[in-house]
Write a protein that binds this DNA or RNA. Structure first.
Lengths: 225, 225
DNA sequence: TCCCTTGTTTTTAATAATACAATAAAAAGA
DNA sequence: TCTTTTTATTGTATTATTAAAAACAAGGGA
């Protein structure tokens, strides 16, 4: 049995999500070689012998986006024998939520952001992995205000609501949202306002460092039966 | 970089939980060889090249318990470089919930059930894996009545409540539990009763096949702030 | 027959979630 | 300066959910 398993390879792939241009977007790289040449893929790499899986995911994230100290969570391990046409590659998928203002990426024809609602042709089972990361993000959002990981450090409640609506893919009631948002542990009201053009300024808020997953967020109304 | 990864090995380990003797118990095997000789471990094995991870977990479960058609879910992938002292072994952990009446195991000094509240010395990081499987089971239980996977086909509401109390590790109010349990989708009231000694017989219930994870179960009261 | 144990049902109060619309603040243009 | 435009901000009535609690029922054994 041991011999039969010798040729497994293990990689870590990271779904990197951010909010840009009023949409949830995912960072993709274009494959330059076969298999799946010219298709898009989520960033990934082999796990080094000296690092654990979290460290591998952080390394890949750092290599690609130059950010750290962000929300990163193991998603699922995909191991279908046919997911890679030429080899037996098992991938441990992670997903990350990053602030667009923290990003320091020079995009190119081979590296760029794509709206999750309009994905290009993807390599391997990466479509499935991205969809699963969105499902998990929705689940997390029902338990804790993890969406603030997508917002800039200072944000308005309208921006926060927009993030929720994009992730949950439904409209929320403005008054109820604000009421519940304001009761969220860790939300801090600032004495600053947006200064934009031709409209009423909005108060800015920020989050203190809170334990994620610590509290149920009440932003999303339950489905009607 | 490829060379550095060649010697990874990948296994699947399965935390098999059941309810026996008024306790949640886990199936463990005693290790006969080093490393961790004479310590206990959760059942596992290498992933074969021809099977995916779910199939590997099902195979291991079937080999050990001779049951199939049970609740099985991928738990987490553990890949610390030091989790195995002699090799770089990454394990994809699963957990399973089985009915004690379905079990067909001949226990021995090397294979047996252990209460999760009183575990023997464990090999590798298996203590962490078992604890994580209990945490996940609790999370699942808050979303769907997955506990019926631990109950026999026909059960009383008191037995069902007992399962919830054991998993959640807290007492529940009998009257409220029954009210909410009876409103659960898929619960079927039978015209049969327990015939036991010296007490009032209890009505038996069963579950029709339901989509798990389809509905929030209301059995557990929220934590007080 | 009485006692003991466990199973079963109902009512009420408290809390949380939901639906819903008018007013306030700033800037631009008339 | 007045009007228009745009977005921010706020409260209440209703409904649904959850929590807490008490009395009665059924069987076995003394």
């Amino acid at each position: 049995m041991f011999n039969e398993t010798k040729t497994h390879e293990i990689t870590v792939d990271v779904v990197i999500l951010t909010m840009k241009n009023n949409a949830i977007q995912v960072l993709l790289v274009k494959r330059l070689n076969e298999p799946f040449k010219d298709k898009w893929a989520i960033p990934g790499g082999y796990v080094r012998l000296s690092e654990n899986l979290d460290q591998a995911a952080l390394r890949i994230l750092k290599e690609r986006t130059n950010v750290d100290n962000i929300y990163l969570e193991q998603l699922y391990t995909f191991g279908d024998p046919l997911r890679h046409p030429n080899a037996r590659v098992i991938t441990c998928a992670y997903f990350a939520l990053v602030r667009s203002e923290d990003l320091n990426i020079t995009t190119s024809p081979e590296l760029g952001w794509h709206k999750v609602s309009d994905l290009p042709p993807l390599a391997f089972d990466h479509k499935e992995i991205i969809e699963y990361s969105l499902k998990r993000t929705r689940e997390r959002l029902e338990l804790c205000p993890v969406a603030y990981q997508l917002l800039n450090e200072k944000f308005t409640l309208t921006e926060m609501q927009k993030a929720y609506e994009l992730i949950m893919n439904k409209k929320l009631d403005k008054r109820n949202f604000r009421k519940k948002a304001l009761s969220t542990e860790g939300l801090i009201e600032l004495d600053e306002y947006t200064k934009s053009s031709s409209k009423r300024p909005a108060r800015l808020y920020t989050f203190e460092n809170i334990k994620l997953n610590s509290k149920r967020a009440h932003f999303i109304k339950k489905e009607k039966k």
